[in-house]
């Protein structure tokens, strides 16, 4: 039944978008995890998506999956705070390179995509129910 593929496609998108939301949550949660300015602290993470086919007989049905998690390579944010226990001899403490504005945008985008795909599932379910009821009444 080909309409079942719509469920698989939408489900793969829901999984992928929730992974993205997960990354956003980690980034925001760790936005203030201070570390020494020599490095080794938390780096902002971004997920990269990839289209994936759902079988040889239906090449037009493409789900989505997480391809990789890339770490943001931008330098850490340095804050002058000599009293901080992790401060270096010059008095600087490093904070992760998380950009809260970027993360909020990412979060809204992911949540919109999630909603849209949930909507797709609802539509597919309604269509299947109508199809099952063809010979009734």
């Amino acid at each position: 039944m080909s309409m079942n593929n719509v469920f698989h496609i939408a489900a793969s998108a829901l999984t992928a978008q929730s992974m993205r939301l997960n990354a956003v949550a980690s980034n925001l949660a760790n936005a203030d995890s201070a570390h020494a300015s020599t490095g080794g602290g938390y780096k902002a993470k971004q997920v990269v998506f990839q289209a994936v086919g759902l079988g040889k007989t239906t090449p037009w049905a493409q789900g989505v999956r997480m391809k990789e998690v890339v770490e943001d390579q931008r330098p850490s944010r340095l804050v002058y705070d000599p009293k901080h226990p992790l401060a270096d001899p010059k008095g600087y403490v490093a904070y992760p390179n998380v950009d809260p504005v970027e993360e909020m945008v990412n979060m809204i985008s992911a949540s919109r995509s999630y909603q849209t795909n949930a909507e797709v599932m609802t539509t597919a379910r309604n269509l299947l129910q109508r199809t099952l009821a063809i010979t009734q009444n």
Binding site: N5, V6, S113, V120
Partner: peptide, 24 residues
């Protein structure tokens, strides 16, 4: 027609699912 509509539904669902996929 129903088969083709179902197939088109799959294609459009793929597009929506991949709205954030690079190079899709």
């Amino acid at each position: 027609a129903l088969n083709l509509r179902a197939r088109r539904q799959e294609i459009l669902a793929s597009n929506i699912a991949n709205s954030d996929t690079p190079n899709y």
